[in-house]
Design a protein around this nucleic acid. Structure first.
Lengths: 150, 150
DNA sequence: CCTGAAACACTAAAGGC
DNA sequence: GCCTTTAGTGTTTCAGG
């Protein structure tokens, strides 16, 4: 059930934008903004949830405050033919926020979150490099996050 | 008003975890899980919002379904002494999801979202390279996102 | 912490494109 | 036929005691 872009119209997009800004906005208020009734808003939200466009209602937190202040990106090489296997295992780690397959500098690009620089070094050494099929790593340490998708 | 990690206790952390999974969970239900009263839950939530630990209530969407299927990372060099200025201007662009300051490959690492590969090329050429102070760019195209913090 | 009032969410059923 | 609306019912939130 992959959601096609055709299934969502202009109203859905505006609805999603409102919910991204503040998902605690009451249905009635959203209804007023979009010039439809409250029932329509909730019907649409249910539809978007069914289609998987809206994955879940959540909160955006400050990583600093939660003791997750350090970020690093890891450029990683996998053993030939084992990229998918390695990607899946890395994705299962909670410290690994993102796993992207690429072909520019290595095979995978990871985003790693940790408490601090020393914690970060430990994670790379003992949890990432130890994954079977990992051939090599290059760490890009983040000094300052100007904009972050937390 | 930078929130110190000392201000949040075990209860806050569990509360945040519940809200990350589903922020539409009613206060009463959360109260039951945490063995506290409903008032306590809402007081805590308000406190965490005030401290900036909880930035906002939002939704997690499927980027594919919203016509944002393409991702690229851009390694960027800024003109000497202009890194902060460039970072701020890039952070203001809606297509730029993340801006990180680094010192490994260039000065900034960006995460860019777009509809497709051609759209991506256009964004880099006409919206990122044109920012004053940008000296050079290296684009890492993502072929497949195994895990993404959308 | 408890209570009551108001706002809000949800269900089912009818109407319009 | 599908989407939207409407009306009625139940739940949650929130202020004052």
């Amino acid at each position: 059930m992959r959601p096609a872009a055709a299934d969502i119209d202009e109203l859905d997009i505006r609805l999603v934008e409102i919910l991204q800004k503040d998902s605690s906005t009451p249905s009635v208020k959203i209804a007023g903004m979009l010039r439809v009734t409250e029932g329509t808003v909730r019907n649409r939200v249910n539809k978007l949830r069914r289609l998987g466009v809206i994955r879940r209602f959540t909160i955006s937190i400050d990583p600093m405050a939660m003791g997750q202040g350090a970020i690093a990106f890891v450029l990683l090489n996998a053993a030939p033919g084992r990229t998918a296997e390695v990607a899946k295992r890395l994705a299962a780690l909670d410290v690994v926020a993102e796993v992207h397959e690429t072909h520019t500098y290595g095979d995978l690009l990871l985003k790693v979150r940790a408490r601090g620089p020393s914690d970060l070094a430990d994670i790379v050494a003992s949890r990432i490099k130890t994954v079977p099929g990992v051939a090599g790593t290059q760490v890009i340490t983040v000094l300052n996050a100007w904009k972050d998708g937390a």
